[in-house]
Design a protein around this nucleic acid. Sequence first.
DNA 1: CTTTGGATCGTCT
DNA 2: GACGATCCAAAGG
Length: 214
Amino acid sequence: MRGPDRDGGPPSGPGTVPRTVPVERDDLGGDAVDVAPWLLHKVLVRGGRSGRIVEVEAYGGADDPASHAFGGPTARNAVMFGPAGHLYVYFTYGMHWCANVVCGPEGSAQAVLVRALTPLSGLEGMRTDRPPTFPDRDLCRGPARLCRALGITGADDGTDLLVPDGTVRLVDDGMPPPGRPASGPRIGISRAVDRPWRWWVTGDRHVSGRTGVV
DNA sequence: CTTTGGATCGTCT
DNA sequence: GACGATCCAAAGG
C-alpha cells in the first residue's frame, strides 16, 4: 500500500509529519456553541479508520428545546450529563447511529453532533457493505453515514475520546480550525430552528445538506 | 441537479 | 401511540 493507513496516526511521511497535538479535556469544557466550530478540522479515529471533521452542530442542555437533554436526564442521554470529552451515541429512525462529543461543564449536558468527515484513512474498510459504485465523497457525508463508515454503534456510547489507546479517539494533527467557517440553522430539527448552531468548512464537498447559507 | 415517500424501532408521553 | 439531531432509491428537470 502507499497511503497513510496506519492505525490512528496522522498522515506520515519523511519531512511532512504534522505534530500530533493531544486534545485536552479543558479544550472541550466551554459551551457547545464555542467548542463546535473549534472542532472543525480535528480528526475522529476508530480502529484503522479516520476522517477530518468538516461539519458540526451544537446542542445545549436543559435550555435547548432541540437537545436530547431538554427535559432532564434519561437512560439514553445519560452520557451527555457526564464529563466533557466522552462520546454520546444515539440510535434514531429505527436504523441509524449518530455520534456527539460531550462538552461544557459536567452536568450541563451539552454536546456537539459530528455531521460530516473528510475520509482520511481506512477507506477500504469504510466501503465494505457498500455498493461498488458508492462515491467516496459520500462515505462520511451525514451523521449516520460517518458512524457507519467508522463502525461507531451504541457499544461506543460513553467512550472517553481523549484516551490514547481508546476505541474511538479525537485527535488534533495540527491543522487549525477554519478562520471563517460557514454557519446556519441546524438540520432535521423541529424546535429552536432559529438558532444558527451548525458550522461547516466553507466549500468542502464532504459537507452534508445545503452549503449555500452563511 | 431536485423532490418524494418509505424504511424501521428505541425512546418518551 | 407518536415521533424522530436520517438515509436511500426512484422519478422528474
